[in-house]
Design a protein around this nucleic acid. Structure first.
Lengths: 246, 246
DNA sequence: CGAATCCTTGAACACCTTCAACAGGGGTGG
DNA sequence: CCACCCCTGTTGAAGGTGTTCAAGGATTCG
């Protein structure tokens, strides 16, 4: 993530939707060039976030959705007790902040994990645009559906899977997402520390660490701090999905 | 749920959105009567499901969203191994099937837990309607936001909470939802077996059973099979949210 | 009445967490 | 340039929370 996005970050800054390499993944998918032009006019493209900088925090007013252009974000829910649950890591082309739509107030927070470009989509304008662009609602709903399906997969992970299955699922899903974005699915750098992975997967940091060690011992992958090289994608997938082998 | 909805089920069947008591919770909220009339024309209102009957199954084409009118549903994700994770229980006024919007195919299944009336909202028509009803997108996004926020709350529950906190959260949330719908928040009948509660909360059936017993011993509530009477709502809420008391 | 389903309770066990200590990089300042 | 420190990650041992296994009780329905 770190490596790949540092390149794209500079090259993609302030690129219009029309020329953005993420078009196929993001909102413009399925719109014609006239429609994309219209969309382009309401998209705010100016925000470059430094690592650790917030896009929004729980409680803030929610008047925009956000799409990741380059880099990566994490969104998390804070509890009164001070602990937090990471909800998702967001890669380029993914939508953010849907939870704030109910009453125009964010319920979670989102922060950059590295230098990150985001596009801002004012909700009010998006709504109005639906009148002009008949195909926009479909694309919006498509991205929403993706987000919801992702959340559902996480509910399954947290509700039913063992620690090993969780980490395998996490890694395998990451592979797929990188591949989808044109990066290597076999080797990549994690942009988050072990703590964040553990938090996301509902585990202790130590458990994640032990599992990485074990995966490496079993020849599944090579891990050196944040750098991951997958040797056996098939076996990783098999570990991720509680097999019906029995 | 069972008791209350059996009444409403008969009285609300085939009622138009305009006259539906759920208007404030459901999609028509915030639309004027002209707009609701237009919406009414595309809503299919004919489906009455028996207990155990499916609204849709994973893999089915997804061409409609659904709103619960009376009764209750559960949605669940199946694994290849044959186990399933319950994603949510759906009460009147709640939206269903968002996960299928990404590629017009349902990724989860939804089944009635009792006799249940549902309204069907054809996606294609909804999309078109966005051109005619400028305020529709907002309401659609509002319901979507609610769904996403609910899922996020579940991720927190499954990722961070103890078994006791999970059950307390589940019950407290149910209280709030019943109250919101004009039913008693202190006494109600669960429409799902212990197995389903346990599955939903990522626990074993036995754990849920033991916790119900313990809650009763502590005077928090009275439980008799599916019938629940809450005696101390405040303490229930306190148990639900890992308190910052420390 | 009998069968099936649902729920409860007890005891042993397993998985993961917690606590604790240490190792290794990477950056900063001398 | 090296020494130091902090942050991140790893590893070991003990302990706890919830699961699994097993059996029995309760309610409903044919």
């Amino acid at each position: 993530m770190a490596e790949a996005s540092r390149v794209s970050e500079s090259s993609r800054a302030n690129v219009s939707c029309k020329d953005c390499a993420l078009g196929g993944l993001c909102l413009p998918h399925g719109l014609d060039s006239t429609e994309i032009d219209r969309l382009d006019r309401v998209v705010l493209r100016h925000r470059l976030l430094a690592r650790g900088e917030h896009v929004f925090r729980a409680g803030d007013g929610c008047f925009s959705l956000y799409a990741v252009r380059s880099g990566s974000l994490k969104s998390y829910l804070s509890t009164e007790a001070g602990s937090e649950q990471i909800l998702d890591f967001h890669l380029p082309g993914e939508l953010l902040a849907l939870d704030g739509l109910e009453d125009e107030r964010h319920t979670c927070s989102a922060v950059a994990m590295e230098a990150t470009h985001i596009c801002e989509l004012p909700v009010f304008q998006l709504e109005n645009m639906c009148q002009l662009l008949p195909r926009l609602p479909r694309q919006l709903l498509r991205l929403i559906g993706r987000e919801v399906a992702t959340d559902h997969a996480m509910l399954l992970l947290l509700g039913k899977k063992s620690a090993m299955e969780r980490l395998a699922t996490f890694l395998f899903t990451l592979c797929a997402r990188f591949k989808q974005r044109g990066f290597s699915e076999r080797e990549f750098n994690l942009s988050m520390p072990r703590d964040d992975i553990a938090n996301y997967l509902g585990l202790a940091r130590e458990t994640v660490s032990r599992l990485f060690t074990r995966f490496q011992e079993e020849g599944l992958l090579t891990v050196q701090r944040r750098n991951i090289r997958i040797h056996d994608l098939d076996r990783l997938q098999a570990l991720a999905n509680p097999c019906t082998d029995a």
